[in-house]
Design a protein around this nucleic acid. Structure first.
Lengths: 139, 139
DNA sequence: TCCTGTTGATTCGAGTCTCGAAGCATCGAC
DNA sequence: GTCGATGCTTCGAGACTCGAATCAACAGGA
């Protein structure tokens, strides 16, 4: 690793993500969503068991009070509901409502359509994911 | 391009950038910088002519009032100065102060040390940059 | 069974960030 | 010179973020 190569790679990563958020913006406004609430929705995979607040905070790289705030935004908009985790009654899990699943589908589709990455081929995308995953999960 | 491959690539891109910001946080606090002011500093390359507000706004994907706010933060901390562009007296260019250059060097170094991408080899980094640039600048 | 320390989440307050609308000065073309 | 366009700032409102304090529930040991 040398600084110029690393700098260029990080700058490009930043650009791709920021352009994705920026160009998804107009689609989000239609659902009264902001980048923050979109990201919260993004990390709730409806195919997996509903995540706890703690799990959400880790995925979103934010702290607990912040997540409480974002969760309230989503609850106010009728997209998620809090439920008590029977296995640990301190923990609240976030369950998508029917509307939440529908809205999430739409905005995720919008994001995938808007991201600059959409122009890459499947092979390139897999190559990209492999490189990034190697960085995220070394060893 | 198919949705699952694209989804995975975008998720990994998001993770790399957010982990970079997250892990650079403690280093930023020492200079009384936030992620936003750090990003503003990041896009002022001291090796190039000082950027105008407009150029900054494009690089940061934000609007003019927002940039005025962030510029004020940097000016208050003595890191940049506004200067009138002689070629267009409406335009203000952002000039790093001596302290600004020093602080920018430090925090950029911190960011490059903190990013998950730092574990990749030069060859991998160049491969990554090539892929991302192809997405950012197609054709 | 009680302590006791820990953990998951919320509340509160303060500060930061973001943006639309309106305003001002300057530019460029005519 | 006039007029529309452009670059930036101000203002006001809302969204976001976080540290500190609080509360309920868990987990372990005496």
């Amino acid at each position: 690793m040398t600084a110029p190569d690393l700098h260029a790679a990080l700058a490009a990563t930043y650009d791709v993500w920021m352009r994705t958020v920026d160009q998804t913006g107009s689609a989000l406004a239609g659902h009264r969503l902001t980048p923050a609430t979109f990201q919260a929705l993004w990390v709730i995979d409806p195919a997996e068991p509903p995540p706890s607040m703690k799990a959400m905070a880790e995925r979103l790289y934010c702290n607990a009070p912040n997540l409480t705030f974002m969760t309230n935004q989503l609850v106010d908009r009728g997209l998620v509901e809090r439920a008590v985790d029977p296995a640990d009654r301190r923990s609240r899990v976030l369950v998508l409502t029917a509307k939440g699943r529908r809205v999430r589908d739409e905005v995720v589709r919008d994001a995938l359509r808007s991201t600059p990455l959409a122009v890459l081929t499947d092979a390139e995308l897999r190559q990209l994911t492999t490189l990034l995953d190697r960085a995220l999960h070394p060893g």
